[in-house]
Simulated scan of single mutants.
Amino acid sequence: MKHLFKVLLISFVFVSCKQKIQSADIPKINGYWEIEKVVFDKGEDKQYGANQNYDYFQIDKNNQGIRKKVTPQLDGTFLVDDTFEKVSVRFQEDKTYLDYATPYMKYTEEIIALTADELVLLNAQKKEYHYKKATAINILGDGKKTK
């Protein structure tokens, strides 16, 4: 019985420590994000090494913006096309959501964690996507600044 009480207490502490995303946190989403791992609903995860694509977010002060896939290049630039998803940020019942819309579909992800260097999103299939802030790659060593 003592062990059960300890487990319940520890579980309560972890659940109550969940980050509450504020409006002031939303600008941290802007920029390039590289996926590190996906945690599935049963607890197993898939680690990602080098990624061929990054997610780029640009959300304005009205909580509206875009998300698009970009491809990093060896010279520190990114290949970008015209494809994007519209994104709006929604706050509801102490949770924060990203609502996406394309001409073909709509879907939602919950923001679980957000810092300047980390982003965790939970989708409807209960998959957690863990991202780290991406930096430009420049292995050519040409001395030029990356954009």
Rank of each mutant, 00 (worst) to 15 (best):
Q47T: 04
A50R: 09
L9F: 06
K126C: 00
D60L: 05
D94G: 00
D41S: 11
G141Y: 06
L114I: 01
E93L: 13
K126P: 00
Y104R: 10
Q58S: 12
D75G: 05
C17G: 04
D25Q: 01
E118C: 10
A116L: 08
Q19E: 11
G43W: 05
V120Q: 12
D75I: 01
K28N: 14
R67H: 08
L9K: 11
G143R: 02
Y48P: 03
T102R: 07
T71D: 12
L140A: 03
K132Q: 15
L121R: 00
Q22W: 09
Y100V: 02
A101V: 10
C17S: 13
K68L: 11
A134R: 05
H130M: 12
K145F: 03
D81Q: 03
V70Q: 09
K106T: 15
Q52M: 05
F57P: 06
T96S: 14
Q19F: 03
V13T: 11
Y54I: 00
L140I: 08
A101M: 09
E110Q: 14
V39T: 15
F78T: 13
E110T: 15
Q58P: 00
K46D: 08
N30W: 04
K20P: 05
A136E: 13
Q64G: 01
D117G: 07
I10R: 08
K126Q: 10
A24Q: 14
F57E: 00
S88Q: 12
V15Y: 10
Y129G: 07
T102K: 06
G49Y: 03
K106R: 15
I10E: 11
D142W: 12
T83E: 13
I21Q: 02
T83M: 10
Y131D: 07
S23L: 11
K147V: 02
K18W: 05
K106C: 11
V80C: 01
Q52F: 05
L114D: 02
P103M: 04
N63W: 01
K68V: 03
I137L: 06
E34M: 07
K132W: 05
N63D: 09
Y97F: 15
G76M: 10
F84N: 01
K133H: 04
K95M: 14
E109H: 02
A113S: 05
L79C: 06
I137R: 06
D55K: 09
L9S: 12
L140T: 06
Q52V: 07
V87D: 08
M1W: 08
I139Q: 10
T71V: 14
Y48E: 04
A124R: 13
L119G: 02
Q92N: 10
S16A: 13
D142P: 09
K6E: 11
T77G: 12
Q125A: 10
E36C: 11
M105D: 15
K46T: 08
L140N: 04
Y54M: 03
Q64A: 06
T102M: 09
Q47M: 09
T146S: 15
E93V: 13
K147Y: 02
S16Y: 04
I111G: 00
A24T: 13
N138M: 08
Q47Y: 04
Y97Q: 05
I29M: 12
K20G: 10
D41R: 12
T96L: 12
